[in-house]
Amino acid sequence: MISIQHYLLVSAAIFVLGLLTVATRRNALGILLGTELVLNAAALNMVIFGRYSNHMAEGSIYALFVIVLAAAEAAVALAVGLMIYRNFKTIDTVEVDDLKG
């Protein structure tokens, strides 16, 4: 039988790999892909807990909002990414480091 822990473990793996991605990728879009993983892990967690605590509606709605907001965030982030590409001719974040110190 699949227990809650199994689900949570998969979700934790997604979360950690997402964080690893954002902390190491050079390409701005690569980092964004990582954030999608982090958000998906959280949404999955909500559904898992909603299911096992018999608060399905709440968990689902939360996950739904996560999906919606992730989409919104991605739209803005990609627009910003295109802007960066215009101004820097690259989306390699290692080269986008005028501001530092």
Binding site: F15, A28, V38, L39, A42, A77, V80, D97
Partner: peptide
């Protein structure tokens, strides 16, 4: 634009950690 990029990447990750 660099500020916006850093802000959006950082913000998205931070809110992701928060909802986790």
């Amino acid at each position: 634009s660099e500020a916006a990029l850093k802000y959006v990447l950082y913000g998205a990750t931070a809110s992701g950690i928060m909802i986790y």
